[in-house]
Design a protein around this nucleic acid. Sequence first.
DNA 1: ATAATGGATATTGTATCCAATTTACAATAT
DNA 2: ATATTGTAAATTGGATACAATATCCATTAT
Lengths: 221, 221
Amino acid sequence: MKLRTVDIARTASAATIIFEALRKAIVEGELKDGEPLRQDDIARSFNTSRIPVREALTMLEQQGLVTTQRYKGAVVAGLSAEEASEIFDFRALLESAVIRAAVPKMSPALLARARSHCTAFATATDPAHWGELNREFHATLYSASDLPYHLSVVNNSLDRIDRYLRAQLELSNGMERANREHLAILEACEASDADEAARLTRAHIEGAKASLLRHLRQERS
Amino acid sequence: MKLRTVDIARTASAATIIFEALRKAIVEGELKDGEPLRQDDIARSFNTSRIPVREALTMLEQQGLVTTQRYKGAVVAGLSAEEASEIFDFRALLESAVIRAAVPKMSPALLARARSHCTAFATATDPAHWGELNREFHATLYSASDLPYHLSVVNNSLDRIDRYLRAQLELSNGMERANREHLAILEACEASDADEAARLTRAHIEGAKASLLRHLRQERS
DNA sequence: ATAATGGATATTGTATCCAATTTACAATAT
DNA sequence: ATATTGTAAATTGGATACAATATCCATTAT
């Protein structure tokens, strides 16, 4: 028997399909802060009942992407400057540790993939993809760490701020700097200099934090 | 109007009540690894329908405390030695950073509370409470950090391993060492020595890791 | 005897229905 | 006019009903 098999037990339920779709829409900023998420509307657009929608919303709430009030419903969770600031500090701590663990385990093949992601980011013209490409570059490097729990937490924290990063990338011309810093990180990895890669990653994140905070504060003034 | 008011909008839904109860039972080890969680049974014991039960299970799955398979149901999530090891490394990184941030903000009142929790832990005779008291001591110190996101992540990672820590505390006589280390951490905090408190916290967690791994490996041999 | 098959039972996933609550707005009083 | 109250529509939370799938066991074929 030579079939292209699929583990059907692992196929997605309606709830997880809706969850993924909403998560993507929120992370990519398609759904704005504070925007209400009506169960009925969502159910209609996915052609299901409200039950799987509610499950998706509870997942999103657990991830901090929406906030719910009893009998009032769910809205896309916003982020105060303080919260954003804290999450950047968190990322700086965690991601620098992750890349430090990853560098000694990076294969030439992985470094090649990372480099191609890096140039893809550098040469991308459609702002809608910048956020995704940026994340792919970092995720590729981090994946070598072989620390699944750390990575899941990193991804979670990234989800919380991704919208703002994207918006900011599109406004100021932070693209050049991001590029420069990516290249520096990549070179440190290729040189197997874990401490340097960690230091550069930390600086990269702290720079993004400063830039985002400027943006957030001016937008809400 | 001088009434003792309560924000009724914040009262718990059936789903969150069930979630908290299951979470507690799992974290405290009352429900063992791999134990199936039947929606119908749980619904009956809480006198509800399966809908809020399913919501609770969804939340638990997001937290990594249960694993679900489509049409097969949820079981209490176990932890391999590798996963446990990684989570301890994660905690060592994160909690040492948190306490470093907390030390300069600790008021005398908070330190007094921490000390009372410390002695409560030291003098507790009922093993069923050790885990709780241990956690309260640390949580009190960490709370001064004023880093809510960090703390929520810390609590999450603690939930994942708490069962095992409790079991281990009860088996080996690690209580004395935990006590000694708690006192040392507390004294560093009282002396406003943030770096020392961070160092001791890291050592405290790494010691627990070694002890737990010994326990896990021998139990599964 | 063993493996394959078919069906009964158990369990989960989803739809539909009802209850509880909020929200918007009209009616009324001051 | 403004504030308060009552009411209807909208929305969410939960219960019940049904569909899809898994599991177990008896039956049958080899």
